[in-house]
Design a protein around this nucleic acid. Structure first.
Lengths: 189, 189
DNA sequence: GTCTATACCGAGATAGAC
DNA sequence: GTCTATCTCGGTATAGAC
């Protein structure tokens, strides 16, 4: 039941992860998906439109993953940890954040899915830190929104360092250190 | 005294920051620097060689800046803070880290300056955290190397978020939150 | 919905005169 | 050391038949 259109989207998602937006050519998508040029331009106006569809599909998938793992723990701080603890190979890059620096993402239309994705995660994490403070799982001397920014940054920065240095553990090291620091903040437990 | 060669390097540094490596064409470098095609290929074997020279120049410059601001404070933790407190507009990207995700940086020759840069900073920061722990400026329950990874990640990740969301304050927010967390770790002061 | 052929452009580099 | 002319290739897309 995999339609040609879905095949194109799945292939684009994979290539966006591997090579980013600018370095992914329509020809490459066609070669790997097995589709022909005609199909491509029948289903999509062009590369940009396909990429947007791919990014939105990826965003949905990652947010589902986020919701799934953070649903389990009862303590709010443990929800944050559950997300940070997902194992990551930093050398492969974030499936979403991989493409942020591509020059073409100056285009607001292309950037929109990315912006929505990060703002959504930031909102969810902010809420978790708020609740964690409200339920006295941690000190409340730090603004929850800034803690959320730090959590996402540690993760994304870990991917940057991993790519630059070849250290696949960089992201897990960064999030690990952050959780250790946060834990010294706990009031109980 | 600005030689054509130096002009080319300076122009490339600027363009690497603005557009990255892949999206920067020789023609663009020539147009902006005022040099001609002949000069370019006389001084450099090609785009790659120029980019490497530009990255090494940028690396020297940023490491000098790092050394300068971290030299002032006496306390080791304050040295780290002095670096983290340098104001940054996250939407402009890191002058060095901006290019890590460009596909061409799969090439080890191109990646080498980047790798050296981050490993150098990581070493320096690790040493600062070691000394901070040794002099009892902070608790020693966390591995200094992992703290260094977190510090660099918070910074680089802040740039990623800044670019994706348009929030120029993202990097300063992330480093600010990290410093606040580290400060709850202090034993004296 | 899908195919092949074609068109246009800019990237990256070389040639050879000055 | 610098200039202009030229070359090749791949990216992105359109045309029109099937």
């Amino acid at each position: 039941m995999a339609t040609t259109r879905d095949n194109l989207i799945e292939t684009m998602k994979q290539l966006l992860w591997e090579r980013g937006y600018d370095a992914t050519s329509p020809n490459l998508v066609l070669e790997r998906s097995g589709a022909g040029k005609g199909s491509f331009y029948h289903h999509f106006k062009g590369k940009k439109e396909l990429a947007i569809a791919a990014m939105e599909s990826r965003s949905d998938e990652l947010i589902e993953e986020f919701d799934r793992v953070t649903a389990k723990p009862d303590l709010y701080l443990e929800k944050v940890y559950a997300y940070l603890r997902l194992p990551r190979d930093a050398t492969r890059g974030c499936r979403m954040g991989r493409i942020v620096q591509d020059p073409s993402l100056d285009d607001p239309l292309l950037n929109a899915p990315l912006e929505r994705y990060f703002k959504h995660l930031h909102e969810r994490l902010t809420w978790m830190f708020e609740e964690a403070q409200r339920h006295r799982e941690m000190m409340n001397i730090l603004p929850p929104g800034q803690l959320a920014t730090l959590a996402l940054s540690a993760l994304q920065g870990g991917f940057v360092l991993g790519r630059a240095t070849g250290e696949g553990a960089a992201a897990d090291d960064a999030t690990g250190a952050l959780m250790a620091l946060l834990s010294t903040q706990t009031l109980r437990g």
